[in-house]
Structures are given as structure tokens and as C-alpha cells.
């Protein structure tokens, strides 16, 4: 298991209140409950994995956290501000599931995709400045894609496209990174690179990271906090506590057996 020490520096915005505070949140769609009475807190510097079986409502929870859906009941605060009053969206870098629904015919270069991360920051009717371009370059360098900046994004492999999407989120200079099922459809090598980048961003840059994933084993090894969801909250705490409490059996049923095996990437220590 890798070392999960605290990141080197907490966000300078730690005084704001936690990145996410979820209190008694429920969401119904067409009368039927999707998630019920969920409460948890994500603190600055956390690396959070939201796990749960298919249909457990984890993607819905993510959409609620990002303001894409409105909770039927309960309240969500982002950085200490009620969600409906929150305006500093640039602080949240979001990597959606686009990497798996990607239209390969879209005629945009890697540079053009990553520059979207500066679009909201630059402001309406404004062109990107030299400062914006520098940040786009640094973000591409961070994920090792600077050399491919002129390539059409549709011609890249799934793993490379995923790194481009991470770079787009980083170009926004976020304090919090939110990723929705980022490892679907990527090969083992890209999988390894992905968690290498995540560890670097969490440990070296002090980013608070929140990942929704179906990969229980990898999440158990990588994250500092687990949120286990199956329509209602079953557990919120450290992976070690989760194992002690047998909450994975509550989550996936009696037939669940966790198979641990050494991946090359889980044996490597973080770069720090």
C-alpha cells in the first residue's frame, strides 16, 4: 500500500470553510428517491473516493455537489458558502466523463481544448492573455502533453485524451479537482499514469481531490477518505476504518470479497 501522508501545503483558502459540506441531502427523480439523507464533509487536502455499486447514486451526488442538479432536501456548502450563492466556480476543476463519450471527429487541437480551462477566467468577449497562455502551457507540461499541443484531440488514445482533460481542469488554477469515473475505458498503462498524476497533484500541489469511481480496490489504496454510497450513506472515513467496519460487505453484499494484488503503480512511492 502506498504512503498516504498529508499534502505538503494546505490550500491558502483553508480559512473559507471545508470544500464540500453535505447535510441531509436527498434527491428524487420523478417521485422515486435516488439518494436519501446523505451527510459528509470533505476537508482541505483530502483525497476522497466516492464508491458504490451501479445505480447507487454516486454520479447524481457528484452532479448535486457541482450544482448541476438541485437537492430535493438538505443543504450543500462549497468553501463555506451555500451552493446557490457560490460564484467562485473557477476554484473547482471538473473532469467529466467526456473522455469516454468523446466525438473523435471534433476538430479541436489539444491546445484548444486545454484553453477552455481559461475561458471562464478570461471573461466574456475577452481574448486569452499571455498569462492565460503560460498557464495552459504549464498545465500541459504537468500532465506530459505539451509536445502534443498541436495534435487533434480525437486522434489521441483514451489515456492521452484523459490527460488533456485533466490539463484543462488544471489550467483553471483550481483548489479542488473533481473527477467522474476517470478510469473507465483507459488501458493499464494510462491507469498507472493517471494515479501517478493524481498523487503528484495531491501531494505536491496540495489539491483537494474528489473522485467518483467503481474501482473499489484501487480507491482503497489511493485515497485518504472514502465515501461509500448506496442511495444512502453507508460510510464516510478512512479506508482503514472502512475495512475494520466491514462496510464493503454492507455496500456490495455478503458475496463481496476484496482481492488485493500488487499493481506496479501501487508499489511505487509518490514523487515527493
Amino acid at each position: 500500500m502506498i504512503e498516504r501522508s498529508a499534502p505538503m501545503a494546505l490550500s491558502p483558502k483553508a480559512a473559507d470553510g471545508p470544500p464540500f459540506r453535505v447535510e441531509g441531502v436527498s434527491f428524487r427523480y420523478g417521485g422515486s428517491p435516488i439518494i436519501q439523507n446523505v451527510s459528509f464533509v470533505v476537508d482541505w487536502g483530502d483525497f476522497v473516493g466516492i464508491i458504490g455499486p451501479n445505480g447507487s447514486g454516486k454520479s447524481t451526488l457528484l452532479k448535486l455537489l457541482l450544482g448541476l442538479l438541485k437537492p430535493t432536501e438538505g443543504a450543500i456548502e462549497i468553501c463555506g458558502t451555500p451552493l446557490r450563492e457560490f460564484r467562485e466556480w473557477r476554484r473547482i476543476g471538473y473532469v467529466s466523463q467526456r473522455v469516454t463519450h468523446f466525438d473523435p471527429g471534433f476538430p479541436a487541437t489539444v491546445w484548444e481544448v486545454v484553453s477552455q480551462g481559461r475561458t471562464a477566467r478570461a471573461g466574456l468577449f475577452r481574448r486569452l492573455s499571455q498569462h492565460d497562455r503560460n498557464l495552459i502551457s504549464s498545465a500541459l507540461e504537468e500532465v506530459g502533453m505539451l509536445e502534443m499541443k498541436q495534435r487533434l484531440v480525437g486522434t489521441l488514445s483514451g489515456g492521452q485524451q484523459q490527460r488533456v482533460f485533466i490539463a484543462r481542469a488544471l489550467a483553471q488554477e483550481p483548489d479542488i479537482l473533481v473527477l467522474d469515473e476517470p478510469t473507465i475505458g483507459v488501458d493499464p498503462e494510462a491507469h498507472q499514469q493517471f494515479f501517478h498524476i493524481m498523487r503528484k497533484l495531491h501531494h505536491d500541489k496540495g489539491l483537494t481531490i474528489l473522485i467518483v469511481s467503481h474501482e473499489v480496490d484501487v480507491m482503497m489504496e489511493e485515497v485518504t477518505k472514502l465515501v461509500c454510497l448506496n442511495r444512502s450513506l453507508l460510510f464516510s472515513g478512512t479506508p482503514e476504518q472502512c475495512l475494520k467496519d466491514n462496510c464493503l460487505i454492507d455496500l456490495y453484499g455478503e458475496g463481496f470479497h476484496r482481492v488485493t494484488h500488487a499493481h506496479p503503480w501501487t508499489e511505487a512511492k509518490p514523487d515527493a
Binding site: 467562485e88 466556480w89 467529466s96 475561458t119 466574456l124
Partner: peptide, 23 residues
């Protein structure tokens, strides 16, 4: 022409554009 970069972002990934704070 003025909204070119916003239109590109929305056409490419409307959900992320919304999360980033674009109207």
C-alpha cells in the same frame, strides 16, 4: 466572433462549461 471561445467550450463539453461558471 466575440463569443467564439465560449461557444467552443459549450459545444465541446456543455456540462464542464456550466461547472466552470460560464452563463
Amino acid at each position: 466572433l466575440a463569443l467564439n471561445k465560449e461557444l467552443l467550450y459549450i459545444s465541446f463539453d456543455e456540462e464542464s462549461a456550466r461547472v466552470s461558471g460560464l452563463p
